[in-house]
């Protein structure tokens, strides 16, 4: 238990370091990109632009901006005012969009896990059968088609040809189902392949053969003796899976008109909304870091051979 605790503490330290590094790099990058956030087709006189800058503390020397903003984040959790969406603070934007993106990601991941593991187990057990081929073929297809194409095809199919889902929008389970499926599909495909490979490996091990030899029923052997070992690679894939789901949500939020935070980022970056972009990057970094740490932790707990470092 103590090693768990000290692991968590150390991880937290690394997280702070990561976040700080990301903050610094993003800060430099954003200032290095030419153009300023007040570009607009109607030119603003210099004196007024200065007032606008003052509002966002952009008139201070870069070092001061750097520290001021950092202090604000650390002491007050205040990410500042969005430059482009001027009625909103970055915290408000995140608070509005985050639950949407999180719901979408959770549903997509859960869907991917359920479907992927099931498909992987089935095709490993019936290795070489037509079902195995079909499942794995579908899985490769899932990996080989970009998700914006997949989503567009899914809309044609499930909105118009077989009208079971609404076209877009947010607010009901039916509305979120289709984007979650599209978002989860590539992850599901990957998990299915990992599970199958893991299953096949464990199936060949001695303890499994012994279990079969003892005359245990097939389902018991698979669930109790094969699956836990076979799922290890899947668990370690959950970190990258989260990253891929978060990235994919940028696309799906756009196609399905979902009010999540993904779509904000592209705007923030391309429209020089420094504060919003920074808020996004930091949020995603923390999220990914926590997820990766949890995955490593789970891995260490589940797999007795692995020690926490």
């Amino acid at each position: 238990m103590t090693d768990l605790f000290s692991y968590a503490i150390r991880r937290f330290g690394w997280m702070l370091l990561t976040v700080w590094a990301v903050y610094t790099v993003s800060f430099v990058l954003m200032r290095a990109v030419p153009g300023n956030p007040f570009s607009s087709e109607r030119t603003v006189p210099p004196a007024i632009e200065r007032q606008l800058r003052a509002r966002y503390n952009l008139d201070a020397p870069p070092i001061e901006q750097y520290t001021d903003y950092l202090v604000g984040i650390v002491t007050r959790g205040d990410l500042g005012v969005s430059i482009r969406l001027e009625d909103y603070t970055v915290n408000e934007v995140l608070a509005e969009g985050f639950p949407v993106s999180a719901s979408l990601a959770i549903l997509a991941l859960v869907f991917a896990l359920t479907l992927g593991v099931t498909a992987g187990v089935v095709s490993a057990v019936y290795r070489g059968s037509a079902g195995d081929l079909a499942l794995m073929g579908t899985a490769v297809l899932g990996i080989a088609i970009p998700n914006f194409v997949l989503a567009s095809l899914a809309i044609l199919l499930f909105v118009f040809i077989i009208p079971i889902f609404p076209a877009a929008g947010w607010g009901t389970l039916r509305q979120v189902a289709l984007p979650a499926l599209c978002l989860g599909a590539p992850v599901a495909a990957y998990i299915a392949r990992l599970t199958r490979a893991g299953m096949l490996e464990v199936l060949g091990r001695e303890h499994v053969r012994t279990a079969f030899a003892k005359g245990l029923p097939k389902s018991t052997v698979i669930l109790k003796h094969v699956l836990p070992g076979a799922l290890l690679p899947v668990v370690s894939y959950l970190g990258p899976a989260t990253a891929s789901v978060l990235t994919g949500s940028l696309v799906l939020e756009k196609i399905f008109a979902l009010p999540g935070i993904g779509s904000h980022f592209i705007y923030a970056a391309t429209q020089r909304d420094y504060t919003l972009a920074m808020g996004m990057v930091l949020t995603y970094t923390v999220l990914l870091f926590v997820m990766n740490s949890l995955v490593d932790l789970s891995y260490a707990v589940i797999d007795p051979r692995v020690k926490l470092q």
Binding site: I155, V159, F160, P166, A167, A168, K254, I255, F256, A257
Partner: peptide, 9 residues
Amino acid sequence: NTALNMYET
């Protein structure tokens, strides 16, 4: 396309 789809539905 999203808007048109929503219009159609």
